[in-house]
């Protein structure tokens, strides 16, 4: 595959936004978007984990292909992600204990975020090289973080308004996500040119 880097970036960031168009990382998207501060911290830590684990799993996948052990792919990817999350946790704890306390339980939860696992799976399926994989990982995680932050901003405003009891909670969040997703559909036109 010879896609240009700009196309890969735009495709993963806007046109096929991981959260709003491909439905990945839904759990944290619905669960952690009630406050802006939590949302952007979560977004940044997920970006870090996705980028590191994406690059690492590119290397591991090359190794597995040379060994003809592709059936181990899924298990190794999961182990890489778990290790990266653990590493991030130790790194943040060492560098900034206050930030570590603020992030709390959200850090280990990144392991079960499907957006993180999807990046290595997609880049293997599309046959990206190292540079393309890195750009793809950064763009996809950036898309995740921006969708999370956007939804949190909308939810903070909606919190103040008067809404029927029946739709309060998850249903309202889903309706908001639907409107956001409708807005992102507008970017679909950009894809046809590339």
């Amino acid at each position: 595959m010879n896609e240009s880097l700009t196309h890969i970036f735009l495709d993963a960031f806007l046109i096929n936004n991981f959260v709003l168009c491909v439905f990945l990382g839904m759990c944290s998207f619905l669960g952690l978007s009630s406050k802006f501060t939590t949302a952007w911290r979560m977004g940044v830590s997920v970006m870090f984990v996705i980028t590191v684990s994406g690059v690492l799993s590119y290397g591991i996948n090359t190794l597995l292909v040379t060994l003809h052990a592709e059936y181990l792919r899924l298990i190794t990817f999961i182990i890489i992600i778990a290790a990266t999350v653990q590493l991030t946790e130790m790194f943040i704890k060492k560098v900034s204990p206050s930030l570590f306390r603020e992030l709390g339980v959200y850090l280990p939860l990144i392991t079960t975020n499907c957006a993180v696992l999807a990046v290595p799976l997609f880049q293997t399926a599309r046959g990206y090289n190292l540079l393309q994989s890195t750009v793809f990982a950064i763009a996809a995680s950036g898309g995740y973080a921006s969708a999370l932050v956007l939804l949190s901003l909308v939810r903070e405003r909606v919190d103040l308004s008067d809404i029927p009891n029946l739709v309060k909670g998850t249903a309202l969040t889903l309706v908001l996500a639907s409107v956001l997703s409708l807005a992102f559909m507008g970017f679909a036109g950009m894809g046809s040119g590339g």
Partner: peptide, 16 residues
């Protein structure tokens, strides 16, 4: 995708 979000929202409202 937007239809997915909205129909799940409607099902949740129904069950609530």
């Amino acid at each position: 995708p937007p239809g997915g979000f909205i129909s799940l929202a409607l099902w949740l409202v129904t069950f609530t």
